[in-house]
């Protein structure tokens, strides 16, 4: 009797765990629609709202966040942007990151040096960048977060065996 109960328990647990795995896989396939945003040129602080990488088909909303207790919050709806990393239109290295899912930054790995990257802001302005560096780095390589004297976007996602590395794209402002 006990054996049957245990068998049933393992069976239910097994089905539940496998389902969890497939549900996680399924939600990566969903389409992300950037929220309708109503930019307002009169806003005092310019914040990034949307990110475009047309060559690899990425168009995603940007969510400001900050590191808490040494951990990086993530979102399933777009790209995270570390608020303290910098501001649009001024020198500095803005740091953004997102999941490597198909509906988020999964195609980032196809980016090439010379591709454009655009940030659309809440003040209805478009900031254009061009990709200068592309690399796969160790997950512990925090040197890419350092501030810079140029206007830069550092965008990364997971890659490698069991997502043990980070695929990084560095873009710098196109000077008009």
């Amino acid at each position: 009797m006990f054996k049957k109960f245990l068998s049933a328990l393992f069976f239910i647990s097994g089905i539940f765990l496998i389902s969890l795995g497939f549900v996680d896989l399924a939600k990566r396939q969903g389409i992300i629609t950037p929220e309708e945003v109503i930019p307002s040129p009169s806003l005092a602080t310019e914040e990034p709202l949307l990110i475009f990488l047309p060559k690899v088909g990425i168009k995603l909303p940007i969510y400001p966040t900050e590191i808490k207790d040494r951990k990086w919050p993530t979102t399933e709806s777009g790209v995270s942007y570390i608020k303290d990393s910098g501001r649009l239109g001024v020198s500095g290295n803005l740091v953004m990151y997102g999941h490597n899912w198909k509906n988020l930054l999964g195609s980032l790995k196809n980016s090439k040096v010379g591709d454009t990257l655009d940030i659309f802001s809440n003040q209805n302005k478009n900031h254009s960048y061009v990709i200068k560096y592309v690399a796969t780095v160790d997950a512990k390589d925090v040197s890419i977060l350092a501030d810079t004297s140029s206007e830069r976007i550092t965008l990364y996602t997971c890659t490698g065996l069991l997502d043990s590395q980070r695929f990084v794209v560095v873009a710098e402002r196109i000077k008009s």
């Binding site: 765990l17 969890l20 795995g21 040494r70 951990k71 490597n100 890419i144 977060l145 990364y156 997971c158």
Partner: peptide, 22 residues
């Protein structure tokens, strides 16, 4: 880092978790 102490770069992949569940 300039953001304080971190454990490395953000974990933005959930593949190990998916493999683990299955």
């Amino acid at each position: 880092t300039r953001f304080g102490q971190v454990l490395g770069l953000a974990t933005t992949g959930t593949l190990p978790a998916v493999i683990g569940y299955i």
